[in-house]
């Protein structure tokens, strides 16, 4: 974490590294991994579902978060009030509860309506993933809306006034100055929120969406193994988190800090 650069070649690090590798080798030899080839295909598919959920819900959630943040920073009270209430409710209740409310609650309400049951949307509404996508999207929007509010409010007034002085219309000023500057300010938090979103995706397995977590649960049921599948799952999430962190670091480095 800290800025201090510590070398890998310090003696105690080498010993720790050797112990770590020793533990991994021990686990690889002494634990049961014979199930791995049978499930490898499905595991890859599960990781795909997890990533697909992550990117779709983060993108949709971010699109929702921009207006949510904007109306809270500069909107009239009849828009900022509901937006603030939405963010409070989403941030004040557990995601698992929201997910189950949508899946069990909303899902059971839809069943009452013959119009919905006969419509084209029913096959989708009967499956689980739309509820998972909706819950994750709303959750991301709630948390990120709060971040965007601060980011919009934090853009210096002078920059917006300068944009107006150049004769930009409010829409152009928003598109060219306000939004890019706010996103730039929110980028570090956005990285953290996306990692949190990745860590929230396994919850959808509780409503029968088949992501990588659900595949591992399946392995555990089939093989009666407790630790091996869970350890592999932890490793998969660690790798995904690492890739996400590196990707955002690269993205942040791409944005110039000083223009010209």
């Amino acid at each position: 974490m800290g800025p201090e650069i510590r070398s890998w070649r310090e003696p105690h690090r080498l010993v720790l590294l050797a112990i770590g590798i020793g533990i991994i080798v021990f686990a690889a030899i002494n634990m049961r991994w014979d199930w791995l080839p049978r499930y490898s295909g499905r595991l890859v598919e599960g990781v795909g579902t997890t990533l697909w959920l992550l990117f779709l819900t983060s993108a949709l959630g971010f699109l929702l978060a921009v207006p949510l943040g904007l109306v809270q920073a500069a909107g009239p009270f009849w828009l900022s009030g509901p937006a603030r209430m939405f963010c409070t409710v989403i941030r004040g209740t557990p995601l698992l509860l929201q997910l189950w409310l949508l899946y069990y609650g909303l899902g059971s309400l839809f069943a009452y309506w013959p119009e919905i049951r006969q419509s084209w949307a029913w096959p989708y509404l009967r499956s689980a993933w739309p509820y998972g996508v909706l819950a994750l999207t709303l959750s991301f929007a709630g948390y990120e809306g709060e971040v965007m509010r601060g980011a919009f409010a934090g853009v210096p007034k002078g920059e917006l006034e300068a944009a107006r002085a150049y004769g930009m219309s409010p829409l152009t000023a928003f598109r060219r100055i306000w939004l890019p500057r706010a996103i730039h300010r929110a980028l570090p938090t956005l990285a953290g929120e996306t990692v949190l979103q990745l860590k929230a995706t396994p919850l959808v397995a509780t409503i029968t969406v088949v992501d990588v977590y659900a595949i591992i649960s399946r392995v555990r049921q089939d093989t009666y193994l407790t630790y091996e599948p869970l350890l592999l799952l932890a490793l998969i999430y660690m790798i995904l988190t690492g890739i996400l962190v590196l990707a955002f670091r690269w993205l942040e480095a791409k944005v110039p800090v000083k223009g010209g």
Binding site: L198, K199, A200, A234, Y237, M238
Partner: peptide
Amino acid sequence: LVRAVPELV
């Protein structure tokens, strides 16, 4: 480790 692995896991 704790911050990189989902709480559920």
